[in-house]
Amino acid sequence: MQVSLQISDISKSFKDLKALKHISLEVRENELFGLIGPDGAGKTTLFRILASLLLPDEGQANVAGFDVIKDYKQLRKNIGYMPGKFSLYQDLTVEENLNFFATIFNSSIEENYDLIKDIYVQIEPFKKRKAGDLSGGMKQKLALSCALIHKPKVLFLDEPTTGVDPVSRNEFWGMLKKLQKKGITIFVSTPYMDEAALCDRIAFINQGEILQVDTPSAIVKNFAKQVLNIQTPSIYKALRVLGSYQHTHSIYPFGESLHYMDSRKDFDWNEVLNHLKNEEIKDVEGELISPEIEDVFMELSRN
Protein backbone atom coordinates (compact mmCIF):
# COMPACT_ATOMS: atom_id res chain seq x y z
CA MET A 1 0.00 0.00 0.00
CA GLN A 2 1.25 3.41 -0.88
CA VAL A 3 1.24 6.21 1.60
CA SER A 4 -0.76 9.21 0.53
CA LEU A 5 -0.42 11.33 3.62
CA GLN A 6 2.58 11.34 5.89
CA ILE A 7 2.61 13.43 9.03
CA SER A 8 5.68 13.32 11.23
CA ASP A 9 6.06 15.02 14.55
CA ILE A 10 3.93 18.08 13.79
CA SER A 11 3.49 20.67 16.54
CA LYS A 12 1.70 23.99 16.44
CA SER A 13 1.01 26.58 19.12
CA PHE A 14 -1.06 29.73 19.16
CA LYS A 15 0.28 32.01 21.87
CA ASP A 16 -0.14 29.98 25.07
CA LEU A 17 -2.31 27.33 23.51
CA LYS A 18 -0.64 24.15 22.29
CA ALA A 19 -3.02 23.18 19.53
CA LEU A 20 -1.03 20.20 18.27
CA LYS A 21 1.55 18.24 20.22
CA HIS A 22 3.92 16.06 18.18
CA ILE A 23 1.38 14.52 15.85
CA SER A 24 2.47 11.64 13.63
CA LEU A 25 0.12 9.84 11.30
CA GLU A 26 0.02 7.90 8.04
CA VAL A 27 -2.89 7.68 5.66
CA ARG A 28 -2.73 5.14 2.85
CA GLU A 29 -3.67 5.74 -0.70
CA ASN A 30 -7.39 5.46 -1.40
CA GLU A 31 -8.22 5.19 2.28
CA LEU A 32 -11.22 6.76 3.98
CA PHE A 33 -9.54 8.01 7.12
CA GLY A 34 -11.37 9.63 9.99
CA LEU A 35 -9.95 12.06 12.53
CA ILE A 36 -12.28 11.80 15.49
CA GLY A 37 -12.31 14.26 18.35
CA PRO A 38 -14.39 16.91 20.09
CA ASP A 39 -14.39 20.65 19.38
CA GLY A 40 -11.09 22.24 20.26
CA ALA A 41 -9.12 19.00 19.92
CA GLY A 42 -6.91 20.45 17.17
CA LYS A 43 -8.60 18.95 14.13
CA THR A 44 -8.97 22.16 12.15
CA THR A 45 -5.39 23.22 12.87
CA LEU A 46 -4.09 19.91 11.54
CA PHE A 47 -6.26 20.22 8.43
CA ARG A 48 -5.00 23.70 7.74
CA ILE A 49 -1.41 22.59 8.05
CA LEU A 50 -2.04 19.74 5.64
CA ALA A 51 -3.75 22.07 3.19
CA SER A 52 -0.65 24.34 3.37
CA LEU A 53 -2.66 27.13 4.96
CA LEU A 54 -0.68 27.15 8.18
CA LEU A 55 2.97 26.54 8.87
CA PRO A 56 3.73 24.03 11.61
CA ASP A 57 6.10 25.12 14.37
CA GLU A 58 7.84 21.77 14.15
CA GLY A 59 7.71 18.62 12.08
CA GLN A 60 7.00 17.74 8.48
CA ALA A 61 4.12 16.57 6.40
CA ASN A 62 3.71 15.18 2.91
CA VAL A 63 0.49 15.10 0.96
CA ALA A 64 0.33 13.12 -2.30
CA GLY A 65 4.10 13.31 -2.43
CA PHE A 66 4.32 17.06 -1.92
CA ASP A 67 5.84 18.73 1.09
CA VAL A 68 3.29 21.03 2.73
CA ILE A 69 5.87 23.78 3.18
CA LYS A 70 8.20 23.62 0.20
CA ASP A 71 5.92 22.29 -2.54
CA TYR A 72 2.81 24.16 -1.50
CA LYS A 73 2.06 25.32 -5.04
CA GLN A 74 2.03 21.79 -6.45
CA LEU A 75 0.20 20.51 -3.43
CA ARG A 76 -2.60 23.02 -3.80
CA LYS A 77 -3.28 21.80 -7.31
CA ASN A 78 -3.70 18.25 -6.14
CA ILE A 79 -5.90 18.52 -3.11
CA GLY A 80 -9.52 19.36 -2.52
CA TYR A 81 -10.30 21.16 0.71
CA MET A 82 -13.62 21.80 2.34
CA PRO A 83 -13.25 24.02 5.41
CA GLY A 84 -15.33 23.67 8.55
CA LYS A 85 -17.96 26.21 7.71
CA PHE A 86 -19.24 25.70 4.20
CA SER A 87 -17.20 28.37 2.48
CA LEU A 88 -19.36 29.33 -0.43
CA TYR A 89 -20.31 32.68 -1.88
CA GLN A 90 -23.72 33.14 -0.33
CA ASP A 91 -24.77 35.75 -2.88
CA LEU A 92 -23.86 33.61 -5.86
CA THR A 93 -26.13 30.90 -7.23
CA VAL A 94 -25.31 27.21 -7.05
CA GLU A 95 -24.21 27.23 -10.68
CA GLU A 96 -22.15 30.40 -10.35
CA ASN A 97 -20.34 29.05 -7.32
CA LEU A 98 -19.47 25.85 -9.09
CA ASN A 99 -18.42 27.64 -12.25
CA PHE A 100 -16.23 30.00 -10.30
CA PHE A 101 -14.39 27.28 -8.45
CA ALA A 102 -14.01 25.32 -11.68
CA THR A 103 -12.46 28.35 -13.39
CA ILE A 104 -9.94 29.14 -10.71
CA PHE A 105 -8.76 25.54 -10.83
CA ASN A 106 -8.49 25.73 -14.61
CA SER A 107 -11.26 23.24 -15.07
CA SER A 108 -14.93 23.22 -16.00
CA ILE A 109 -18.07 21.51 -14.78
CA GLU A 110 -18.17 19.40 -17.94
CA GLU A 111 -14.59 18.22 -17.63
CA ASN A 112 -15.05 16.37 -14.36
CA TYR A 113 -18.77 15.93 -14.50
CA ASP A 114 -18.73 12.17 -13.90
CA LEU A 115 -16.88 12.72 -10.64
CA ILE A 116 -19.42 15.13 -9.20
CA LYS A 117 -22.45 13.81 -11.07
CA ASP A 118 -23.92 11.76 -8.23
CA ILE A 119 -23.75 14.72 -5.91
CA TYR A 120 -24.55 17.47 -8.33
CA VAL A 121 -27.74 15.94 -9.72
CA GLN A 122 -29.23 16.31 -6.25
CA ILE A 123 -28.68 20.06 -6.19
CA GLU A 124 -29.05 20.71 -9.89
CA PRO A 125 -32.79 21.45 -9.63
CA PHE A 126 -31.79 24.42 -7.48
CA LYS A 127 -28.92 25.65 -9.61
CA LYS A 128 -30.43 29.12 -10.01
CA ARG A 129 -30.86 29.51 -6.27
CA LYS A 130 -28.41 31.53 -4.22
CA ALA A 131 -26.14 29.43 -2.03
CA GLY A 132 -27.22 31.42 1.00
CA ASP A 133 -30.79 30.19 0.59
CA LEU A 134 -29.92 26.50 0.59
CA SER A 135 -30.51 24.16 3.52
CA GLY A 136 -27.54 22.83 5.49
CA GLY A 137 -27.55 19.54 3.62
CA MET A 138 -27.64 21.24 0.22
CA LYS A 139 -24.85 23.62 1.14
CA GLN A 140 -22.78 20.66 2.19
CA LYS A 141 -23.32 18.96 -1.17
CA LEU A 142 -22.50 22.11 -3.07
CA ALA A 143 -19.35 22.65 -1.03
CA LEU A 144 -18.31 19.07 -1.71
CA SER A 145 -18.93 19.51 -5.43
CA CYS A 146 -16.80 22.66 -5.38
CA ALA A 147 -13.99 20.83 -3.60
CA LEU A 148 -14.09 18.03 -6.17
CA ILE A 149 -14.35 20.08 -9.33
CA HIS A 150 -10.65 19.77 -10.20
CA LYS A 151 -10.43 16.05 -9.52
CA PRO A 152 -8.10 16.19 -6.52
CA LYS A 153 -6.01 13.22 -5.45
CA VAL A 154 -6.63 13.83 -1.78
CA LEU A 155 -9.80 15.28 -0.33
CA PHE A 156 -9.74 17.09 3.02
CA LEU A 157 -13.10 17.45 4.69
CA ASP A 158 -13.07 19.37 7.95
CA GLU A 159 -16.18 18.49 9.94
CA PRO A 160 -18.38 18.19 6.88
CA THR A 161 -21.35 16.89 8.87
CA THR A 162 -21.44 19.38 11.72
CA GLY A 163 -24.76 21.18 11.92
CA VAL A 164 -26.33 18.90 9.34
CA ASP A 165 -29.32 16.72 10.12
CA PRO A 166 -29.01 12.91 10.31
CA VAL A 167 -30.65 12.32 6.93
CA SER A 168 -28.13 14.51 5.14
CA ARG A 169 -25.32 13.08 7.22
CA ASN A 170 -26.25 9.62 6.15
CA GLU A 171 -26.40 10.59 2.49
CA PHE A 172 -23.11 12.37 2.80
CA TRP A 173 -21.27 9.31 4.03
CA GLY A 174 -22.80 7.36 1.16
CA MET A 175 -21.30 9.88 -1.25
CA LEU A 176 -17.88 9.60 0.40
CA LYS A 177 -17.89 5.84 -0.07
CA LYS A 178 -18.61 6.30 -3.77
CA LEU A 179 -15.85 8.86 -4.15
CA GLN A 180 -13.46 6.48 -2.48
CA LYS A 181 -14.27 3.86 -5.14
CA LYS A 182 -13.21 6.40 -7.76
CA GLY A 183 -9.73 6.39 -6.30
CA ILE A 184 -9.71 9.47 -4.12
CA THR A 185 -8.03 9.43 -0.72
CA ILE A 186 -10.33 11.01 1.84
CA PHE A 187 -9.22 12.54 5.12
CA VAL A 188 -12.26 13.55 7.11
CA SER A 189 -12.72 14.92 10.61
CA THR A 190 -15.80 14.66 12.78
CA PRO A 191 -16.86 15.20 16.37
CA TYR A 192 -19.44 12.43 16.07
CA MET A 193 -18.29 9.14 17.50
CA ASP A 194 -20.99 7.24 15.64
CA GLU A 195 -19.43 8.23 12.32
CA ALA A 196 -16.17 6.52 13.25
CA ALA A 197 -17.49 3.10 12.24
CA LEU A 198 -17.97 4.37 8.67
CA CYS A 199 -14.24 4.98 8.19
CA ASP A 200 -11.59 2.46 7.13
CA ARG A 201 -9.30 3.61 9.87
CA ILE A 202 -9.62 6.28 12.50
CA ALA A 203 -7.40 8.36 14.73
CA PHE A 204 -8.67 9.66 18.05
CA ILE A 205 -7.52 13.17 18.77
CA ASN A 206 -7.99 15.08 22.00
CA GLN A 207 -6.29 18.24 23.27
CA GLY A 208 -3.78 18.21 20.46
CA GLU A 209 -2.70 14.62 20.93
CA ILE A 210 -3.39 11.47 18.95
CA LEU A 211 -4.73 8.89 21.38
CA GLN A 212 -4.99 5.87 19.13
CA VAL A 213 -4.94 4.90 15.46
CA ASP A 214 -6.56 1.73 14.11
CA THR A 215 -9.56 0.30 12.34
CA PRO A 216 -12.80 0.90 14.24
CA SER A 217 -13.32 -2.80 14.86
CA ALA A 218 -9.79 -3.34 16.12
CA ILE A 219 -10.10 -0.40 18.46
CA VAL A 220 -13.18 -1.92 20.04
CA LYS A 221 -11.78 -5.46 20.04
CA ASN A 222 -8.50 -4.52 21.71
CA PHE A 223 -10.13 -2.59 24.50
CA ALA A 224 -8.92 -4.08 27.76
CA LYS A 225 -11.79 -3.25 30.07
CA GLN A 226 -15.18 -4.86 30.41
CA VAL A 227 -18.25 -2.71 30.06
CA LEU A 228 -21.36 -3.36 32.08
CA ASN A 229 -24.52 -1.96 30.55
CA ILE A 230 -27.06 -1.11 33.27
CA GLN A 231 -30.69 -0.31 32.63
CA THR A 232 -33.08 1.11 35.18
CA PRO A 233 -35.91 3.64 35.18
CA SER A 234 -34.10 5.67 37.84
CA ILE A 235 -30.98 6.51 35.89
CA TYR A 236 -30.06 9.57 37.86
CA LYS A 237 -30.20 7.82 41.22
CA ALA A 238 -28.22 4.87 39.90
CA LEU A 239 -25.66 7.29 38.52
CA ARG A 240 -25.25 8.91 41.93
CA VAL A 241 -25.02 5.60 43.75
CA LEU A 242 -22.35 4.24 41.42
CA GLY A 243 -20.57 7.54 41.40
CA SER A 244 -19.62 6.92 45.00
CA TYR A 245 -19.25 3.14 44.79
CA GLN A 246 -15.84 1.98 45.94
CA HIS A 247 -15.04 -0.18 42.90
CA THR A 248 -16.19 2.21 40.23
CA HIS A 249 -13.59 2.99 37.59
CA SER A 250 -16.00 5.03 35.50
CA ILE A 251 -19.75 5.45 35.19
CA TYR A 252 -21.31 7.32 32.29
CA PRO A 253 -24.85 7.70 31.08
CA PHE A 254 -25.35 6.34 27.56
CA GLY A 255 -28.76 7.42 26.48
CA GLU A 256 -31.20 5.39 28.52
CA SER A 257 -28.60 3.15 30.08
CA LEU A 258 -25.43 3.49 32.10
CA HIS A 259 -22.02 2.15 31.13
CA TYR A 260 -20.05 0.98 34.11
CA MET A 261 -16.41 -0.04 34.27
CA ASP A 262 -14.89 -1.62 37.36
CA SER A 263 -11.52 -0.71 38.81
CA ARG A 264 -10.69 -4.37 39.48
CA LYS A 265 -9.26 -6.61 36.83
CA ASP A 266 -11.88 -9.33 37.24
CA PHE A 267 -15.19 -8.58 38.75
CA ASP A 268 -18.55 -10.19 39.27
CA TRP A 269 -21.03 -7.80 37.74
CA ASN A 270 -23.88 -9.25 39.79
CA GLU A 271 -22.17 -7.74 42.77
CA VAL A 272 -22.59 -4.30 41.20
CA LEU A 273 -26.23 -4.89 40.40
CA ASN A 274 -26.85 -6.12 43.95
CA HIS A 275 -25.24 -3.00 45.29
CA LEU A 276 -27.72 -0.94 43.30
CA LYS A 277 -30.61 -3.03 44.54
CA ASN A 278 -29.44 -2.61 48.12
CA GLU A 279 -29.55 1.13 47.58
CA GLU A 280 -33.22 0.74 46.71
CA ILE A 281 -32.95 1.22 42.99
CA LYS A 282 -35.70 -0.72 41.31
CA ASP A 283 -35.92 -2.76 38.13
CA VAL A 284 -32.19 -2.97 37.62
CA GLU A 285 -31.01 -5.02 34.68
CA GLY A 286 -27.48 -5.49 33.48
CA GLU A 287 -25.34 -7.26 30.91
CA LEU A 288 -21.75 -7.21 29.75
CA ILE A 289 -21.45 -5.65 26.33
CA SER A 290 -18.65 -5.02 23.88
CA PRO A 291 -17.59 -1.40 24.26
CA GLU A 292 -18.69 1.31 21.90
CA ILE A 293 -16.25 3.62 20.16
CA GLU A 294 -17.27 6.31 22.61
CA ASP A 295 -16.38 4.14 25.63
CA VAL A 296 -12.91 3.73 24.23
CA PHE A 297 -12.50 7.40 23.45
CA MET A 298 -13.57 8.45 26.93
CA GLU A 299 -11.29 5.93 28.56
CA LEU A 300 -8.36 7.10 26.46
CA SER A 301 -9.00 10.78 27.02
CA ARG A 302 -9.24 10.28 30.78
CA ASN A 303 -5.58 9.35 30.97
Binding site: P38, D39, A41, T162, P191, M193, Y252, M298, S301, R302
Partner: peptide, 10 residues
Amino acid sequence: TGGVDPITRR
Protein backbone atom coordinates in the same frame (compact mmCIF):
# COMPACT_ATOMS: atom_id res chain seq x y z
CA THR B 1 -24.08 19.77 23.83
CA GLY B 2 -23.54 19.38 20.11
CA GLY B 3 -19.88 18.87 19.25
CA VAL B 4 -18.82 18.78 22.88
CA ASP B 5 -16.45 16.06 23.95
CA PRO B 6 -18.15 12.93 25.32
CA ILE B 7 -17.05 13.29 28.91
CA THR B 8 -18.08 16.92 29.20
CA ARG B 9 -21.36 16.11 27.57
CA ARG B 10 -22.11 13.46 30.16
